[in-house]
Write a protein that binds this DNA or RNA. Structure first.
Lengths: 124, 124
DNA sequence: TCTTGACTTCGAGCGCACTCGAAGGGGAAG
DNA sequence: CTTCCCCTTCGAGTGCGCTCGAAGTCAAGA
């Protein structure tokens, strides 16, 4: 038994399917991960950390296309750190805007709930 | 010139395409809207209000399927008001959870930005 | 040794929410 | 009357992000 997790174990850990993990690799979101003697993927802790970062980017609405751009920067080495930071700061701004939009739209939904509550009251 | 907006005007007003407005009608998200003598759609202010509510539900992540369920309740009349309020309250809870998730994931992104900043500093 | 089950690659398929294009029909301006 | 533009219906196409299935390999357990 080599060190590291199989694709199934890594998938369970990060909350994605094994199919999706292979697809992420194929799409260039993840560097080709190490293999054991039989050609099976072995996810080390660094690989898992990277996947967890990717899932955070995904759940905050980053597209696969942008995640690929980011992965390419990371592969190109330490001289792309400034660009990576900018990419994250732009993403952060988008997420903050998204949160503000959600709050704004919730206002309208709350108004609607209040209207329904009043209608229920009058029906009695 | 009849009263009301054409599909193009209504689309511009609510920020959707004319194609999408027709599609919403076809999908049962909107009651068949009134027509002028030539069979063209005429959106009255109530129709536009409904579309604006729908767009708020969409931008807060409600699926077209759930919007259709809501539209069906509204069509069934005033005795569905309680159910509509419940639907909105459940949706509101999901949106609040989504906002909380976004804040949590932003934390991780902020940590990453800080790490990059330190790396940039050390490179100088 | 045999079975089981997770792994491999590859390519096709799916669900969602539009998005577009074709073909034709007014109606208002010049 | 012609031009123009927006309208109509219908069905097909698109982009995204997976998701699935087929066919085959391999290693560990009974």
């Amino acid at each position: 038994m080599d060190r590291g997790l199989t694709v199934g174990e890594a998938a369970a850990k990060v909350g994605l399917s094994a199919h999706t993990l292979r697809w992420y690799e194929q799409e260039g979101l993840v560097e080709p991960v190490g293999r054991d003697g039989a050609g099976r993927r072995r996810y080390e802790s660094g690989d898992v950390d990277w996947l967890m970062l990717l899932t955070r980017l995904r759940t905050t609405g980053m597209s696969v296309r942008d995640m690929r751009r980011y992965a390419e920067l990371a592969r190109r080495g330490p001289h792309t750190v400034t660009e990576r930071r900018r990419l994250f700061e732009e993403h952060k701004a988008r997420v903050l805007e998204r949160i503000a939009d959600l709050h704004r739209d919730l206002e309208a939904i709350n108004v609607k709930i209040e209207i329904y509550r009043r209608m229920e009251h009058e029906q009695q």
